[in-house]
Amino acid sequence: MRPSILLSLLIMSATVYVIRALPFVLLRRNITNPFLRSFLYYVPYVTLAVMTFPAIITATDSPWSGLLALIVGVVVSLVRGDLFTVALSSCVTVFLSELFLVH
């Protein structure tokens, strides 16, 4: 059975929502188990690190501009860890470096 585009979008949207909402129904209380608490504390850091590298290097037109954006992003995060500043410095780094790297 091939669903229409609108029905397909409805089915897939509902599926993603259920995946996101299920834990909020199942885990209503704070977890006391030390291992689980620790595990869930570390989840965001590991997930975001895994998603950042090496993806940042393949996202740009030149791997070198992506690498530079990573280095600048790390340095700016250490100096002033504000979302907007870091995101902007990474973007500007790519833009400026690609003026030389990509023709």
């Binding site: 740009t60 501009s65 992506g66 992003g73 690609e98």
Partner: peptide, 15 residues
């Protein structure tokens, strides 16, 4: 190309 690293920049600012 420049905008494509914005999301990764934000991830770095968090981790």
């Amino acid at each position: 190309s420049a905008l494509s690293v914005a999301l990764y920049g934000m991830f770095l600012a968090i981790i």
